[in-house]
Nucleic acid binder design. Structure first.
Lengths: 357, 357
DNA sequence: GTCAGTTGATCAAGCGTTTTAGCAAAATTA
DNA sequence: TAATTTTGCTAAAACGCTTGATCAACTGAC
């Protein structure tokens, strides 16, 4: 009666803080079941070549249930020497919805293989990044996913090399010593253009970004590839450049209209969103007067513009998942350089369906 | 020369996997420095009442540097009995940009106090949720943040009670046994309405959502509060309801125009986005013909509509941060029920500035 | 020269597991 | 019945670290 209630002081009156004095340990379970800790451990881990009497097993399991035993992962990991953690350092969880998708993909895949995600958000701060990686190393993570919110080249921080790591959505020029997984911008650009080609368009403008990035080159390359495949000559005149946001798209309207095209492929959805406004102000309707495709598939935007925007998905979820698989050695990098993940086309109403063959 | 290279087999030829044979331990540092492990431990942890000769300290630090020693967090935690982890279980990292903000806020605040974030994304799957919480308990987390992507009532999973926890962006009807932090919807609604009132508007419509939620009631209450404070009688006729997305906003245009108002407050930014289209089709311009405010401050939308949308921020970052503070007992819940976090107004061009006094 | 105090460092127990080697009893074989 | 094998379980070391108890060597004080 006396030792029943070890009240842990002032915390007790705050809702949500109940009495969680001392966690149940293996030893206590063992005592309760009248066996050794070794036996309990064997029961818990279902070792195949462990010989446990059915009756004993039952007794142990009952004790576990009764006491509400939870294994201590710390102790487990101490013994095994490595944790079931995968670290994810991201430079922009906050900035965009994109990072969330990478996290989600990584989390799902990691979970599937019994790993938990340890995340750190650095927002580009180098010191924070160093601390975050150090923390992960101290927790003996299985490996680290180093991700950026937009596809770009990056330097691999020195400390990262103390662990197994995979670059996600970024790559190192020095690709011999690092594994990386990135979106396939060229294929994406090709798919985007193909949507328009399938719509029967032959004279297609491309509003590219002004900002240098792998995406800038890749998406342009894809555009050229698609045209070439259809035997359409590439006309540099049809390629404009603008800042990659709504304003940029809006601002490019005038120049675009001079090109006398029936369709336009925008570097990203945000530009397309701005362009919608510009076209509308000029009394043009989409897709009747001009067909539009974007890139990125930003749900909030693309799916809900009027008309909904055809676009190409940046496979952030897949990037996260593929990163984990590569880290765990499930996906072997095939060939040289970063592994490229496909950007699937998402067709919506901003391009009319071509009825003729 | 011989034991120099312990090549760990086939992994060695994969970029990113280098030789990380055996991590350096305390003992090795101790040997290198010619002291006991106890001494090294004391040096590392800078114990104030530990007496260490300056010379010894130097020797130890040098050894640490030379060997590239990293403490093993698992072992540390085993001893201390509790980890430096805070768990965050979220039901929708993927679904919206919102969860990302909660993560970000929690992460920053946790980090500030020496904690790392262990996240799990359940996407609403109950089994996953149970496993996730179990995992966190096994890692002896300091506590768990249980968050939802939209503000709502929720049941507290039983296992959650085995740990310290705080509900974030949700609350339990049974608020006596749980701590919670949620956005202050009523204040937010009031702020949104006030933006319009300050713009000189007196006859203001409110397009509420059709979906029942704390936000529905709170945002309406705020609207009424603001009107009342200005001595304007609440007119139920001015309150419409629609599905809370672009389509809903667009679809409400017709009804709205019949109300003959000079301003409209939308339940959220997405509705406002749809409404923009509807108003434009009717030849109305914003803010000249009609002023608009939204709610949520979804960056991709609000900041980039034409004109940019005045709105009210859902303080997701703050929710995450406040959740951590409450968990750690830094913010004591003041009074009854969930702690409410302010939703700050964000004024943009969709409401004209009122020049007269 | 003895005693007390201070300084600098070590010893050893313990945190909660896993796991190998080994032991006693039961079952099988001869 | 004795020898052998199988079965069921345990002892104990190890994982890498922290920390209170100890201890040896000095330093002064008297």
């Amino acid at each position: 009666m006396i030792s029943q209630e070890k009240n842990s002081g002032s915390a007790a009156d705050v809702p949500g803080i109940t009495d969680r004095a001392h966690p149940v340990t293996l030893r206590e379970v063992a005592e309760a079941a009248g066996v050794s800790t070794a036996t309990v451990s064997l029961v818990i881990n279902k070792k195949k070549n462990a010989r446990i009497a059915a009756d004993t097993r039952k007794r142990v399991q009952e004790a576990i249930r009764q006491l509400g035993y939870r294994p201590n992962a710390m102790a487990k990991n101490l013994v095994s020497g490595t944790s079931k953690f995968i670290g994810l350092v991201a430079d922009g969880v906050a900035t965009t919805p994109f990072a969330g998708q990478i996290i989600h993909g990584a989390q799902d895949e990691a979970w599937k293989h019994g790993y938990a995600l340890l995340i750190a958000n650095t927002e580009g701060n180098v010191d924070l990044e160093k601390d975050a990686i150090a923390m992960m190393l101290e927790y003996k993570v299985r490996g680290i996913l180093y991700s950026t919110w937009f596809h770009r080249a990056t330097e691999v921080p020195e400390t990262l090399r103390e662990s197994d790591f995979v670059l996600v959505n970024c790559f190192s020029p020095d690709s011999l010593t690092s594994r990386a997984v990135v979106p396939d911008e060229a294929q994406g650009g090709k798919s985007a253009t193909e949507i328009l080609l399938r719509g029967g368009h032959r004279r297609i403008a491309f509003i590219n970004t002004t900002t240098p990035a792998p995406a800038k080159d890749g998406r342009l390359q894809g555009y050229r590839d698609a045209l070439e495949a259809e035997g359409i000559a590439f006309d540099p005149e049809l390629v404009l450049e603008a800042y990659p946001d709504q304003e940029g798209g809006y601002g490019a309207t005038g120049e675009l209209l001079k090109l006398n095209v029936s369709a336009v492929y925008c570097y990203n959805d945000r530009m397309a969103m701005g362009l919608y406004d510009g076209l509308r102000e000029n009394g043009l309707s989409i897709p009747e007067d001009i067909a539009v495709v974007g890139f990125d598939n930003q749900e909030v935007i693309a799916a809900h513009l009027r008309p909904p925007l055809s676009t190409v998905s940046l496979p952030h979820y897949e990037l996260g998942a593929a990163g984990v698989r590569m880290l765990l050695g499930l996906d072997r990098p095939s060939g040289e350089g970063p592994v490229k993940i496909a950007c699937p086309a998402v067709e919506r109403a901003s391009v009319a369906v071509h009825s003729a063959a």
